[in-house]
Design a binder for these strands. Structure first.
Length: 484
RNA sequence: CGCGGGGUGGGGGAAGGGUUACCCUGGGAGCCCCAUAAGCUCUCGGAGCAGGUUCGAGUCCUGUCCCCGCAACCA
């Protein structure tokens, strides 16, 4: 049995989950469920990134001890599993000293042994207000925009990782598709960046500035910076640094991330893996951002949407459906409640829900349906097999929205089939047709399972097989009640 | 300034040199009544602007206007 290891980015704990987090998790969940359905052994990982100055500050603002703060927030991210109906197998937290830290320390040592960690002096503009370095763009007339203070030039010594050494190798692996990056525009983007040559990256911060994190082995004056700390979660979670289980799962078959962190995952992370002598992930799938009513989601605008609220209001499957179908997998998309309602009533209530009710209603007129469910209409058989093929290929290309669209098309085909055959007339004589319809609905449910697990299950429960040639049907509840 | 993406019927999206530009939604007409006042058929309606390449261009090129991202060591 082949394995399929899929990860999402770990979420940074400076705020609670928003709709964008939900999108990524749901996309990953579809792939995880799909591969499970194919009979593969799947491990689906999510988690949280809990270190760094921003977390420290957010905790302070909340008036909580840092660990307490992250514990509480991490719960909210964990809860997404329940609300969004995610089939995750693991959840890793970077503050987890038992499961995560050993992997981080082991990897750091590996990089040291490879001769890729070195100390270097760094000069930068330090803003006292920020308690951090600032860059030119934070300044206006030589002063920090936020604090109206002139930054000082400060020099400090940090550990660096020799990423430059792996620049060429990473580029080649990507070009050879050993490390596949989808969609292609993202691959082009990262290749262009790599062509220019990757620079070494800073791997630590002085502990006095960053007390919340993992200390550099043998040098408590320094704390690891995010790269080695956070990226390592993908292997620490499956045992790296603790046991040999990681060899079963690594390399990841798919790592789903947002477009904002492409560089880290397609450049720094592969560099670290190469240095440590570990295989690279097979593919990186990059999603876009969700706009709300055409506007960027932002705290200042105040349009940040809470996925949990939406799920409570509309249910997990409708929200999943919208995000999967209406947001193109690798691109930016738009969410608005108005648009959501349109899709809900058009596609879910009128489409899938109504079709299901139609077919189950027609079929339930028979006490028992007997017949040869293998011997179906050529056109129906063809439609189903084409649908299956397209789903397979679309999911392989990280085009989830198109996979959903093709299932919708099958439903639409079914609706046409009902009309064209005037199935409601002389029901007895139309038994063959109804059997075909059941086959369509049954297959649609199976196709839908990774996308809308709850709905698919409801449909499947309505069709009760007695044996290969006999079934009874009971009309279930309304799948998608009308919104008003 | 630079780099990247984009401007498609009233609204939202898809396709990416080749006959009548696809889907959802909206307007109009008809069919049907099994179903969640759902379904089916027909119909209305479209490519920012200006050029160019080509037998043929939403699709390639140039210019122009507009929109949106990114600018990796963001400490």
């Amino acid at each position: 049995m082949s394995k399929f290891y899929i990860t999402t980015a770990i979420d940074y704990l400076n705020a609670k989950p928003h709709l964008g987090h939900a999108l990524e998790k749901i996309q990953a969940d579809v792939l995880a469920r799909y591969h499970r359905q194919k009979g593969e052994e799947v491990f689906f990982l999510t988690g949280t990134d809990e270190h760094g100055v921003k977390v420290l500050r957010a905790a302070k603002v909340a008036g909580l001890e840092t660990q307490v703060f992250v514990d509480e927030l991490a719960e909210e991210f964990k809860d997404l599993k329940k609300y969004l109906n995610l089939s995750t197998d693991g959840f890793i937290r970077t503050s987890d000293k038992i499961n995560h830290w050993p992997g981080v320390l082991a990897l750091w040592e590996k990089l040291v042994k490879a001769g890729d960690i070195y100390k270097k002096k760094y000069r930068g503009l330090y803003c006292v207000g920020h308690e951090a370095f600032v860059t030119e763009k934070d300044l206006k007339d030589g002063r920090c925009v936020e604090h109206q203070k002139e930054p000082e030039v400060v020099e400090e010594e940090n550990y660096f990782f020799r990423l430059s050494k792996y620049s060429k190798e990473i580029g080649e692996r990507i070009k050879k598709k050993e490390l596949r990056i989808l969609p292609e525009t993202r691959e082009n983007e990262i290749l262009a960046l790599i062509e220019r040559g990757l620079e070494d990256v800073s791997f630590s911060r002085p502990s006095k500035d960053l007390p919340w994190g993992i200390s550099v082995p043998g040098d408590p004056e320094h704390t690891m910076y995010v790269w080695c700390d956070a990226l390592t979660n993908y292997i620490s979670a499956i045992g790296y640094g603790r046991n040999e289980d990681y060899k079963k799962w690594w390399p990841a078959n798919a790592q789903i991330i947002g477009k904002d962190i492409l560089r880290f995952h397609a450049a720094i992370w592969p560099g670290m893996l190469l240095s440590a002598g570990l295989p690279l992930p097979r593919q990186i799938l990059v999603h876009g951002f969700i706009n709300i009513d055409g506007q960027k989601m932002s705290k200042t605008i105040g349009n940040v949407l809470d996925p949990v609220e939406l799920v409570k209001k509309y249910g997990a499957d409708p929200i999943r459906y919208f995000l999967l179908k209406e947001i193109p997998s690798g691109e930016d998309g738009d969410f608005s409640e108005e648009k959501f309602k349109m899709v809900y009533s058009g596609q879910l209530a009128n489409g899938l829900g109504n079709f299901s009710a139609r077919v189950l209603g027609l079929a339930s007129k028979f006490e028992k349906l007997e017949g040869d469910f293998k011997l179906i209409d050529k056109a129906v058989e063809e439609k189903i097999s084409v649908t299956r093929k397209i789903i397979d290929s679309k999911l392989g290309e990280f085009r989830i929205h198109e996979a959903v669209a093709v299932i919708d098309e099958l439903i639409s085909f079914g609706d046409r089939y009902v009309n064209e055959n005037e199935v409601w007339k002389e029901t007895e004589l139309k038994k063959e047709i109804i059997i075909n319809l059941i086959v369509i609905l049954d297959n649609a449910a199976s196709f839908l399972k990774p996308f809308l697990p709850e709905t698919a299950e409801k449909i499947e429960k309505s069709i009760q097989w007695i044996d290969e040639k006999t079934l009874t049907v009971k009309k279930g509840e309304v799948l998608f009640p009308r919104l008003n």
